[in-house]
Design a protein around this nucleic acid. Structure first.
Length: 435
RNA sequence: GCCGCGGUAGUAUAGCCCGGCUAGUAUGCGGGCCUGUCGAGCCCGUGACCCGGGUUCAAAUCCCGGCCGCGGCGCCA
């Protein structure tokens, strides 16, 4: 779209535009001064294009402005497209006029052009410059493809997109710590999951999904945890865990397919190849996973939760990079998880694992009130504080199931990066509240 | 929170084990040369040892404490 500032994106300038006048706007990516010629590489979100100035023929005021340019200064260039085999991609812009819209200070606290690497700590501190780097623009585009595809696939299954409240009353859900907020003088908390509300919505709209932030005030200090993260959640009435697993593996499959098709260049920029998977994904029962580990000499007892170390070892003996672990012990899962009818020690639950990383987890949910109250009591939770939730189990709560997936973890698989902070635009962790 | 490793110019690193007085390199920055670069090249210059204490004639280097970072765990609907 043509705007007040530009009529074409740098990456879209091709030989077909040869001879045409264009206006581009972007950041000064590189400057190469060769005596008689000066090359200015201008970058926008789409890519880069070279602006070539011949010092003998260019007007003086243009040369003066060219002298003032610094890396990451914002410029608008009006000129004509010239086909030239010596130029990158065979085209360049010969400028009539360069407008300096904003001069960048020097030196930059981070190299945007990719010549000098930076530590993750420096990158997050200088995040906006870091996000301009080719790798991060690729991550952003892959992320967008993934989001778009997730929504398309879920809508294809008849899910509708919803939002659940993020300020909640109850801190007594057990497990993770919550961030307290003051809500009109009352104590409230930031939601750590849409779980309970999405279940209630499934009792009204049958199939719902939400892509939204969640917060956990955990001590967790790892490359896989954030204090604020995006959770992709679905909840569906009249489905069980096997039904929603099929939806989950299809979502992931379609996302990987879309990224392969639509982000070929981005994957190349990231020097990453997506893993190949075929459906259905392997489904390994928890108890069999324990056996496999014990056969390998790992000391792990049935009933114990699987740690990341266990998953690392387990993934070595599973040919698929993505797999499900199913039917966890009931007592290590959340209270709303439905136990198996034939063996209540185990539950209708699953985790989706990529190598050693848990991407998603889900289950059939309890839909009978008595059973739910019992499950709360067994975990030592205060039934009264869940009354806002339990109440609706008196009025037509259907059988239902769902899952939640950590978005930044999915992005790790899609981009080949190793730290969720890297693929989160402005990550919030225990020690980072800015930028 | 525990364990491990680390903190050297704006950025990224070498030097540290085996202490020695111009702290090297790349990139950046300033200046110069060069009509086609594309990680441009060449020449000159510029800029740094996390903080505090200790050992020593002498500390970037060894020791202690602190702060900060990264990784491995733990914690984790």
């Amino acid at each position: 779209m043509e705007t007040k500032y530009k009529n074409v994106m740098c990456g879209n300038i091709t030989k077909e535009l040869s001879g045409k006048d264009v206006v581009i706007a972007g950041w000064v990516h590189q400057i190469r001064d060769l005596g008689g010629k000066k090359f200015i590489v201008v970058r926008d979100f789409s890519g880069v294009v070279q602006v070539t100035i011949s010092k003998d023929s260019a007007p003086k005021d243009l040369l003066d402005i060219a002298e003032e340019l610094t890396f990451e200064s914002v410029v608008q260039v009006r000129g004509f497209v010239k086909e030239d085999p010596r130029a990158p991609r065979g085209v360049e812009i010969v400028p009539y006029e360069i407008k300096l819209l904003n001069v960048a200070k020097k030196p930059l606290p981070l190299d945007v052009s990719g010549k000098v690497p930076a530590d993750i700590d420096t990158r997050l501190r200088e995040r906006v410059l870091d996000l301009r780097r080719a790798e991060m623009r690729a991550v952003a585009r892959i992320s967008d493809t993934a989001l778009k595809t997730i929504r398309e696939v879920l809508r294809g299954y008849g899910f509708i997109e919803v939002f659940t409240p993020k300020i909640i009353a109850s801190a007594t859900e057990g497990g993770a710590s919550l961030f307290p907020v003051i809500y009109f003088g009352k104590e409230a908390f930031l939601a750590q999951s849409p779980q309970l509300y999405k279940e209630l919505l499934a009792a009204a709209f049958e199939r719902v999904f939400e892509i939204a932030p969640a917060w956990r005030a955990e001590e967790s200090d790892t490359p896989y945890h954030l204090a604020e993260f995006i959770s992709i959640d679905i909840e569906a009435a009249f489905m069980n865990y096997e039904d929603v697993m099929k939806i989950l593996e299809n979502v992931v499959y379609e996302v990987m397919k879309a990224v392969k098709e639509e982000n070929e260049d981005d994957l190349k920029t990231l020097n990453y190849t997506l893993p190949d998977i075929s459906l259905p994904l392997p489904r390994i029962k928890y108890i069999d996973a324990i056996k496999m580990l014990r056969d390998k000499g790992v000391s792990v007892e049935p009933g114990e939760d699987l740690s990341i170390t266990h998953l690392r070892i387990l993934s070595e003996s599973i040919e698929s990079p993505l797999y499900f672990i199913v039917e966890f012990p009931t007592k290590i899962r959340a209270f709303y998880t439905k136990p198996k009818d034939d063996d209540p020690t185990y539950s209708e639950s699953f985790d989706l694992v990529w190598k050693h990383l848990e991407l998603a987890s889900g289950s059939s949910r309890i839909h009978k009130k008595d059973q739910l109250v019992e499950a709360l009591k067994e975990r030592g939770l205060n039934v009264e504080s869940f009354s806002f939730f339990v109440k609706w189990f008196d009025y037509g709560m259907p059988p239902h199931a769902g899952w939640g997936m950590g978005y930044s973890r999915l992005l790790l698989m899609l981009t080949g990066r190793s730290n969720v902070k890297e693929v989160t635009l402005f990550p919030r962790d225990k020690k980072r509240l800015t930028p």
